[in-house]
Simulated assay, not measured.
Amino acid sequence: MLEPLGLTRQEQDLYESLVSRRPVAAAELIDESTALARLVELDLVTLVDTDPAKYVVLPPDIALDVLARRRERELADARRKMVELTVRFHGSTARREPADLVEVLHGDQEIAQIMPRLLLSARNEVCGWDAPPYRDDPNQVNQLELDQLKRGVTFRVVYDRRGSVDRPGRLAALIQGIADGEQARVGDVPLKMTISDAPLAFVPFDVRATRHQTALLIHDPTMVAGLAALFELYWDRAVPLATYDGQQPAADRPTAEERDLLALLMSGFTDLEMAAHLGWSERTVRKHIDGMRHRLDADTRFQAGYQAVLRGWLEHRG
């Protein structure tokens, strides 16, 4: 675990071996010459001029602390350089040509390559609108988003009510995203857009196409700030898609049968498929769905699924 201090695995293994041994004759370490030279360079080990010459480990609490402090100074210097470069970057923005502030992306390959770059650029937050058309399966888990969530990056997304949410299996995928830490709302959004606080913004150009063949990657901080302000307007107007904390009254809790039926319903199964899976008749399936709609005060199946989410019916229970 000493890699952050600049040691390779081989160097760490040798160091740990020497820590638990008495001074070792130089001749015994001839096969470890490369790793040994690095430990000497880092002042973790020293060569004592005895007969024969021996390598001695310096006290780890002192030597490793010195090395750690050295690393801290290097990181501090790197941060200062980062700030300097950031100031230079933003100071030069006004002098850059418009073509340098907006990249035009053409084709599936360029567009696919840009999304990881945008998500990984975020320091604190990614926000945006989710709307069709989709390049990939909209129900597929975005592993990169999960990794960023674990790092503490916030994700806020407004999902289009008709084109994005009202699709077979989509609501179940959104529920999983919320469980992973995403903040989601539902509303009417005009197009797909993703914004990183780098700042960077991705906007598809041909929004009427069935697939995005052209898109814009915007670097200009002023333009990105404008799009972010527009996002906030839609975010404030959207309906939160969230679950309760599981403390709903016992009378409002779903039965095991209702939970199984909801999972199938929101995964896009037909009545016939749900009946076959549950061992029911189609009539029984429809009866249970109508019963849930009545309990949830919902006019449609989609509304029933949405209300089930709001009431925490689909939360995992231990």
Rank of each mutant, 00 (worst) to 15 (best):
E3V: 09
L7R: 04
Q10Y: 02
Q12E: 15
Y15C: 02
A27H: 08
A37Y: 01
R38W: 02
V40C: 08
T46E: 14
L47T: 08
D49E: 13
D49H: 08
P52W: 08
P52H: 06
P52Q: 06
A53K: 11
V56T: 10
P59R: 07
A63C: 07
A63W: 05
L67D: 05
L67M: 08
R73Q: 11
E74A: 15
L75I: 15
A76T: 14
D77I: 10
K81G: 05
V83H: 10
E84V: 00
T86D: 13
R88Q: 15
F89L: 14
F89M: 12
T93S: 09
A94T: 08
V102Y: 08
H106L: 11
A112I: 03
A112C: 01
P116G: 07
R123L: 09
N124P: 00
P132D: 09
N142C: 07
Q148M: 15
Q148N: 10
K150E: 13
R161P: 01
S164E: 08
V165A: 07
V165G: 01
G169M: 03
R170K: 12
A172H: 09
A173P: 05
I175P: 02
G177F: 02
A179H: 11
E182L: 15
E182T: 12
K192F: 11
K192T: 13
K192A: 11
T194R: 08
P199H: 03
L200D: 03
V207S: 05
R211A: 10
H212W: 09
H212Y: 12
P221A: 05
M223C: 06
L227T: 06
A228S: 15
A229V: 09
D236P: 07
D236E: 15
V239I: 14
Q248C: 03
P249M: 03
A250R: 13
T255Q: 07
R259S: 05
A263W: 08
H277V: 11
R283P: 00
R283W: 06
T284W: 03
H288T: 15
M292A: 09
T300L: 05
R301F: 00
F302Q: 00
Q303R: 13
A304L: 04
R317S: 12
G318M: 02
